[in-house]
Design a protein around this nucleic acid. Sequence first.
DNA 1: CGGAGGATTGACCAACATCAACCCCAGTGG
DNA 2: CCACTGGGGTTGATGTTGGTCAATCCTCCG
Lengths: 256, 256
Amino acid sequence: MPRGAPSNNAGTMHLIPILPAEPASPACAACSLRALCLPLGLSDQELALAGSMVAQRQAVARGDTLFRHHDPFRAVFAVRTGFFKTRTLGRAGQEWITGFRMAGDLVGLEGLADEHHVGDAVALEDSQVCVIPYPPLMALLRDMPALQRQFHRLLGREIARDQTLRLPGRLRADTRVAAFLLDLAERLQSRGFSGSSFVLRMTRAEIGSYLGLTLETVSRAFSAFQARGWIEVKQRDVRLLDTPALQQAVQAEMPC
Amino acid sequence: MPRGAPSNNAGTMHLIPILPAEPASPACAACSLRALCLPLGLSDQELALAGSMVAQRQAVARGDTLFRHHDPFRAVFAVRTGFFKTRTLGRAGQEWITGFRMAGDLVGLEGLADEHHVGDAVALEDSQVCVIPYPPLMALLRDMPALQRQFHRLLGREIARDQTLRLPGRLRADTRVAAFLLDLAERLQSRGFSGSSFVLRMTRAEIGSYLGLTLETVSRAFSAFQARGWIEVKQRDVRLLDTPALQQAVQAEMPC
DNA sequence: CGGAGGATTGACCAACATCAACCCCAGTGG
DNA sequence: CCACTGGGGTTGATGTTGGTCAATCCTCCG
């Protein structure tokens, strides 16, 4: 079992690398993530139709890429289980992390812009995604206003998110780390996992790259929070002991 | 004539504050921006329909807001003439600039997320926008696949843009400023203005806020570029003398 | 002509990056 | 079972970048 495998998410092991054209047996209607994902707000009848749009499930092993920079954009992906990072590779090979995606998130929306993906999506643990081919999606959006509305909602969320997440760029280092932990905790919680005790799926270097910090600075921030009794960290296991204190530290610097 | 008025954009003066329900006389079909804006790729017939969707034009005077944080989301706006900044206000009243918008850009897309706008949009010069109410837009997207495609394209561009523009957060100060100038120049050029000689519509403080720098650092970067003969700056007038040098300075640090 | 907001420049200092040593832990092979 | 290896994490010492504070200038506008 790979390092760091004790998973927040159930059912990520024993995956066949690709499940080709499996007709999405437990379709959207039976998916526990439907309240977070595209089908939110659909009627039962619409749910069945939406399920038919999901051409296949795909398993992505830890370390494999879901798509690479400049791949043709054919589909968006909904994460079912697992965890992804999205990144851009520099000419010198350095990695610029642009985001982390978990169950219920859509990945690959940047490809809407010009028929090509922007950056890579890499699985940080064995994962499973629903493949939603773009042309059928477009057609279905036309027929189902509720689906169209929800799709727009998710797109708007990405845009609004990036607009508020630009802000961390101007925060002090440990404030950024605190904001990162709180964001992660909240997203895990909204997906039914514990929001106070979880396993980091990414390295310190990846967190740093995402936040625009070095791995040492991230490590120091963790240590500082632990010294203050706000969190408990041991390698990748994190326990939030004083969420309000973290929130307050962030609020003090953040707008709204 | 207001300060800094010699404008890149024609036709920004003598504006009536609001042009209520003016039926968009020179509709999309006659608009010089249609190749940049929503109607890109529509047939003549579709263009006429699209024009009918634009309920009204609205004039926004320099300093006025187009929408404010948490205003109900009713419409997206297409900038016809002028220049906007989008921002978030902090509790202490400090301003966090999230972007600058010019002719042909859509503003207010973040509102798609949850029926409310996120942040304010403020005109940096006398401007004019097309008001595109959301319900009619949704309906038209349903009937016109080309419009739907283009709408998605613009949304995807926002998402991809934020993903690459997160990067400046990790660049050195003058590299960020160089990237900012180049981005501005390119956008102006693609809209038919000069890409090598233009007037900054925003203050050093606003640039700094956008880039996560102080106004002093922005000013120093400008001075340094000028000393190297790369640009010529005098107050808000900028002339790019050695674009390749600027590009190279950015490339050296940037990925892709 | 005076005032005010914006821009420039300099001196100083704090925060974070860099460099480096060391530790921890899992996996591997003898 | 233990020693070894290597990737990841922690911690400390030092240096650089860019923020802070402050003085001065420029330009527009009343």
